[in-house]
Simulated assay, not measured.
Amino acid sequence: MGRLALEVADIFRAHGPAWRQSQQGQLSLDQLKVMSAIEQCRSAALGGHVLCCEACAHTEIAYNSCRNRHCPKCQASAAQRWLEARQDDLVPVEYYHVVFTLPAPISAIAYYNKAVIYGLLFDVAAETLRTIAADPQHLGAQIGMTLVLHTWGSALTHHPHVHGIVPGGGLSPDGERWVACKPGFFLPVRVLSRLFRRRFLEEFDKLHCAGQLQFFGDYAALANTTAFADWLAPLRECDWVVYAKRPFAGPAAVLAYLSRYTHRVAISNRRLVAMDARGVTFRWKDYRAKGRTRYKTMTLSADEFMRRFLLHVLPSGFHRIRHYGLLANAGRRANLAKVRAVLHVAPAIDSTARDLEATVGALPPTFVCPKCGAAMIIIETFTGCRAIRAPPKPRGAP
């Protein structure tokens, strides 16, 4: 696949150094690392290899990827590896897509408390689904789910929400039968929304009492217990956005959906239109509009574009794909085996036990010659050029 006309890396390379200098002390270490990774991705700075075509002897240089999870160019292969690992987890039942969204006031606090509040969003969303599903008035079953965190809106604004992929049913409390939900209907959204709001605010208040939340700028006064309680009161009355989409058209559609959502970043290179004296222009989707008028273009200054992009850098080590209930990592294999047994479905073939020789023989070549389409092989590798670091200055030195 050829290089796109404009990439996020081009914007960071052209405007990143000057903006980084102007923002000294304002950017976190994680944000600086993401900027550096994107700027260096697939450039000589990271090294690479020389490829040669086995058929026509055409040679070319390929530079290494940064493999940063926020880089738009490095997610396709990571998503493919993840999907291959998830294929064995699918069972022949309906799958539903559920979304839990935080209100704007809490989203503003979440930006300065990412690890704590994003983690709470995951856990409360999963608890809400499992609690309502376990209620005999609704489903009366143990369910499993995969949750994926997104922190952006289409215009790169800060908009934390989790997408849940949930099988349409679960195991009975005794684990002896499969309890399916009504066709085309998973769980009542209004009930989910009310419980999600109550449980999130309860745990949110506990975090405040434990001193685990930080407040800055216009929100600094919320460190006071009384001010925080007054600020929280309206959030107990407003509606929280939780919605469920129509069921997927079979397990294959679930995989197709996951391939688009699990390793998505704030903006893909394909949405970029132009970078000129006016700034950076990109396509976005206005969900408040209808029909074709939803699809619009927006132009931001390069500095504002980079600022919005870096809003969505996750804390180091934070997992944005998590599994709960029957799909939790600790008991997933045993639980899926039990589900297949009660559904009378043949056990999944362990991917590690497949015929590796046949699999390898069916794989396309890793590198393909752009001239003749034959396989290319690596004939030489080279390392990147690292900048020389000066020794640390003694304490007190200018």
Rank of each mutant, 00 (worst) to 15 (best):
L6A: 09
E7R: 15
R13I: 11
A14W: 02
G16H: 04
P17Y: 03
Q24V: 10
K33H: 08
V34Y: 02
M35W: 12
R42W: 00
V50E: 12
L51G: 05
C52K: 15
E60T: 09
I61D: 06
I61H: 07
R69K: 14
P72S: 12
K73T: 09
E84A: 11
Q87A: 13
V91H: 10
H97V: 09
H97L: 10
F100W: 07
F100H: 04
T101K: 06
A104F: 01
S107W: 04
Y111T: 00
G119M: 02
F122W: 02
E127S: 13
R130Y: 00
I132H: 02
D135I: 04
L139E: 04
I143W: 11
M145L: 15
H150G: 09
H150Y: 08
W152N: 11
L156G: 02
G164P: 00
I165F: 15
V166T: 11
L171C: 10
P173K: 06
E176F: 01
C181S: 13
K182P: 00
P183F: 01
L187C: 07
P188Y: 13
P188F: 13
R194V: 15
E202P: 04
D205K: 13
K206V: 11
H208V: 08
C209S: 12
C209V: 09
L213K: 07
L213N: 02
L213I: 12
Q214I: 01
F216D: 05
L222R: 09
A223M: 09
T225D: 14
A227I: 05
W231Q: 02
A233N: 05
P234V: 07
L235I: 07
C238Y: 00
D239L: 08
V242R: 03
P247Y: 09
F248G: 07
A249P: 00
A253R: 10
V265S: 07
N269I: 02
L272G: 05
D276R: 01
Y287T: 10
K290D: 05
Y295T: 03
T299V: 06
R308K: 11
L311K: 12
V313N: 05
L314C: 06
R320N: 09
Y324A: 12
G325P: 03
L326V: 13
L327H: 13
A328P: 04
N329E: 14
A330Q: 15
L336Q: 13
R340Q: 08
R340F: 10
A341I: 00
V342K: 08
L343A: 01
A346W: 01
A346N: 05
A348T: 06
D350W: 04
R354V: 11
P364K: 14
F367G: 03
C369D: 07
C369T: 08
C369R: 08
K371T: 15
K371Q: 15
I377W: 01
E380D: 15
G384D: 10
R386L: 13
P391I: 05
P392V: 11
P394T: 13
A397R: 08
A397S: 15
